[in-house]
Design a protein around this nucleic acid. Structure first.
Lengths: 203, 203
DNA sequence: TTATAATCGTGATGATTGTCAAGGCTCATT
DNA sequence: AATGAGCCTTGACAATCATCACGATTATAA
């Protein structure tokens, strides 16, 4: 009985691995097509990790080794201010990249933490491998440029939202923009993302 | 008399042009070194324009042809909300890139305006030339990736500031971060940048 | 110079929001 | 069934901030 179960498990793992690989490829090919050889090269720079709810991918003070691509699950990127209050810098769902990017790019220690809100599967990309990908395949540098550009635009849109809208309007914009988040995340965290108190969001 | 004056003017223009070229090269070489040939290639994709105080580089509704690199002067990027109130998305001083980037990258019409607060000299880069630079010289794609990454980090820092700090603290952070801005910009505009009213900033 | 427009500071008032506190609800565990 | 943890709502009060209004000072232009 045992051996059979084990080999079934192995098959499942391989199937899971293939499916993860496929998701990585689809993710990149939304931006730029890749040949099989190119994808093989790319894929070799990533590692897979799984985390459970409440686990930390990054804690304040850690050196930040990786940028993460979320395949399934949900993360929160949190900045804790000097009074101890927590603010959500961003949520990361399927198909999102996340890290403490300042610490990642400058290879310094994290000022933010990255924590699981659900069990989460990610691809990990070390800073070294990030550079190797950029050097080795111009398509990947193009890919990261595209991601960075649109990441910037998203951040700018959020700044405009914070400047122009009150709590209620910001909440409505979020509902419209990411309706699935409202279902998956406790409202106290949505409040910490929108920059209002939990009580204000209730009303 | 006339011809002499004219030729002097020409010499001055050439000298000015050389100095502008030099600033462009220094700007890029802060990120990545260039050979003379490479810089010649790069420089051919830029055009120079001068604007006077109160002139618009981009008006809401325009198609956005260019991204701008400020060589001297000062710009404000403004978002006007549906009540007609103006919010400063960012200021652009010497050595800063600015545009309505969403409209630039997607080649759609501007939702923001870009206006001179001082007489301003800029290098203009069209979207086509931006792509040609990325395609023609990997160093330039690397350059833009670097700019985009740090632009994103700046926007993220601003989001954190808006989430964690009240008006007074945000003003103090701005003084510390860009003391020259406080001198050059009327406080009503600083207020529109920080997300508070002019009166609150006074106190 | 004179007139006009910008800019800045300040007072009074009302709206929005944060904070503190209490209570209800759901869910997992015992 | 009972317990406790986590999450949400609501009320009362204080702090913050926006708005409107006025006057003073400083640029800007005719």
């Amino acid at each position: 009985m045992r051996p059979i179960k084990k080999s079934l498990l192995l098959i499942n793992n391989i199937a899971g691995f293939q499916s993860m690989r496929q998701k990585l490829r689809e993710h990149i090919e939304k931006i730029t097509p890749l040949s099989d050889d190119e994808f093989e090269f790319v894929q070799n720079h990533f590692t897979i990790k799984k985390f459970k709810k409440h686990q930390y991918l990054i804690q304040e003070g850690d050196t930040v080794k990786y940028a993460y691509l979320v395949i399934s699950g949900l993360l929160k990127l949190v900045y804790t201010d000097n009074t101890g209050k927590q603010h959500i810098v961003s949520f990361a769902m399927e198909d999102w990249w996340e890290s403490d990017y300042y610490a990642f790019y400058t290879q310094t220690v994290a000022t933010m933490s990255l924590e699981c809100l659900e069990n989460t599967e990610v691809f990990c990309l070390s800073f070294e491998d990030y550079k190797k990908l950029c050097d080795g395949l111009q398509k990947m540098e193009r890919f990261f440029l595209h991601k960075s550009n649109f990441g910037f635009l998203g951040a700018q849109r959020r700044i405009i939202s914070l400047l122009t809208s009150d709590a209620k309007e910001r909440y409505e914009q979020l509902v419209k923009q990411s309706p699935s988040l409202i279902q998956r995340v406790p409202k106290s965290l949505l409040a910490a993302y929108l920059g209002v108190s939990r009580e204000t969001l209730s009303r």
